[in-house]
Amino acid sequence: MSQLILDRLAATFTGGELEQIGSQHGNEWARVRRDAWRTVGSFLRDDPACDMKMPTDLTAVDRMTREPRFDVVLHLYSVTKKHRVRLYAGVPEDDCTLDSLVPVWPGLDWFEREAYDLYGVRFRGHPDLRRILMYPEFVGHPLRKDYPKEKRQPLIRRSGFPGKPE
């Protein structure tokens, strides 16, 4: 049912922007070249056959040993046509940036902030890119696979009150 989107994408973007398309477990997905991220997004929103006006989710995956290291994953939905698609963009670790999709779908504001906070992917053109779930004094990006799960960065000293003297 979402094959239509992949067909439209394949028909429109013939210059190598679409690196790979596929379908798995009922989800259709397309891998997009990094510099065509915003073009493909705008097309999907504005094309009347696709009409993907609702952004459902934006997140990142740390593939660890694969190059490029991170995948930014975007899920889109159309309330009129009732179809979905998933888009991937590979982001390397040394140049961890990607175009922001906030000008296309304003609802991705907080989702991109969260991907920046937890994975370190910077979004170019985001109006207010700062940490959202962790506190500003936190150092590092905790959902990366090389961040140990139990490494705490306490914000307040742990002693000096009745029951726990200095």
């Binding site: 140990p148 799960k149 139990e150 705490r152 306490p154 307040i156 009745p162 029951g163 726990k164």
Partner: peptide, 16 residues
């Protein structure tokens, strides 16, 4: 919850 964000108990900062 034993992770980077959870304080292991409120008695780290207040006496319970």
């Amino acid at each position: 919850y034993q992770n980077y964000s959870t304080m292991p108990g409120a008695d780290q900062v207040v006496p319970v």
